[in-house]
């Protein structure tokens, strides 16, 4: 596994193999950027249930997984999605109705937890959270944690600085490592073995990948191995971490993919409108997710004219003058 063999497969096959009911999952991207949306919609189409999801600020992807009925437990720092949904709508409704068990952390804490997972250490320290309810209030009770051996016994812990006052800190908050069963990211370029090149911000994608037991990469372009080896310093992830490579143009749509396309304000606004109402959201899922065979089916419904409006400018990496009101 993870050797230099050809890992290219269909998205349907990758999700069927690596995303199972009840598994622990994390997805890449941040709010309206580079969420692996084709994979998210395929997970919903395949009807996965009871996923335990780890997120820092995944807006669109996590909210659709919640709306699609796939997630039952969520560890998250931020459930917002820019202008389209200052608080993610399906997230908000699910929490208020008690349908989703949530554990709140900060973005830095979640990034550290993925890093700890990637490094293979049990926890990492931070000075963030001292004196707050992020430390004091737990979403997962100690009893519930005790019944789930795959979860740490504690949300987090404050410990004295074992080095005295070294580093000007008397106490630190330690946050437990995350090792998801599967991480899914969307990147600009990958080769058939799984080496990835991410353009623009990487958010926490690289550590999310390295922390995971299995990794699915979806990509805009599959390129030749030698092409990525010419400038290895521009590569983000070596193939040894990756299990599946799936070629999905517009695979982050309706979120952005730097240098390829912008986020689609029209589609995001449209989803937010439907997400507020049960009947409308069910109709939306029936038509745009369950009603299509694959991501290309969704793109066909959206139409080439709409996709042309978000095509990225070569210099800036986004769609100049895109109507974002």
């Amino acid at each position: 596994m993870n050797s230099s063999h050809d890992k290219v497969m269909t998205l349907e096959e990758a999700i069927a193999r690596f995303v199972t009911d009840g598994c622990h999952i994390s997805i890449g991207g941040f709010t309206v950027n580079r969420n692996p949306m084709a994979a998210v919609y395929e997970i919903i189409r395949q009807g996965r249930k009871n996923l335990h999801c780890y997120a820092h600020s995944n807006g669109t992807g996590v909210d659709e997984l919640i709306g699609g009925g796939c997630i039952s437990r969520l560890e998250i720092a931020y459930g917002g999605n820019g202008k389209a949904a200052p608080t993610c709508i399906r997230f908000k409704l699910a929490v208020q109705r008690g349908q989703l068990l949530v554990e709140d952390y900060t973005n830095y804490q979640m990034a550290l937890r993925f890093l700890a997972g990637a490094m293979g250490v049990p926890f990492l320290p931070t000075l963030s959270g001292l004196g707050t309810d992020i430390v004091a209030k737990w979403g997962f009770s100690p009893e519930m944690r005790a019944n789930h051996p795959e979860l740490p016994d504690k949300k987090l812990e404050i410990i004295d600085n074992p080095f005295g006052a070294w580093g000007d800190a008397a106490r630190v908050v330690v946050v437990p490592a995350i090792n998801p069963d599967v991480t899914i990211i969307h990147v600009q370029q990958a080769d058939r073995n799984g080496t990835c090149r991410i353009e623009g911000l990487n958010f926490a994608d690289i550590d999310q990948v390295k922390a995971a037991k299995s990794v699915i990469v979806t990509c805009e372009e599959i390129v030749e191995v030698h092409q990525l080896r010419e400038k290895p310093e521009y590569n983000s992830i070596p193939f040894i971490h990756v299990d599946a490579v799936v070629h999905v143009p517009f695979g982050a749509y309706p979120t952005a993919c730097h240098n390829f396309y912008d986020y689609d304000p029209v589609y995001l606004k449209h989803v937010s409108h439907f997400a507020k109402d049960e009947k409308l959201y069910a109709e939306y899922l029936a038509k745009f997710v369950h009603g299509v065979k694959d991501h290309q089916g969704l793109l066909n419904l959206v139409g080439k004219g709409q996709l042309d409006t978000i095509s990225a400018d070569k210099t800036t990496g986004y769609a100049i003058g895109l109507d974002r009101r």
Binding site: A77, G80, K92, Y105, T106, S128, T132
Partner: peptide, 21 residues
């Protein structure tokens, strides 16, 4: 109540981090 609030907002994001640091 945190467990099942009347109104849920997005959460900390990086706000607690920046306010802490």
């Amino acid at each position: 109540e945190y467990a099942q609030p009347e109104t849920r907002f997005p959460g900390s994001g990086g706000a607690c981090d920046v306010a802490s640091f």
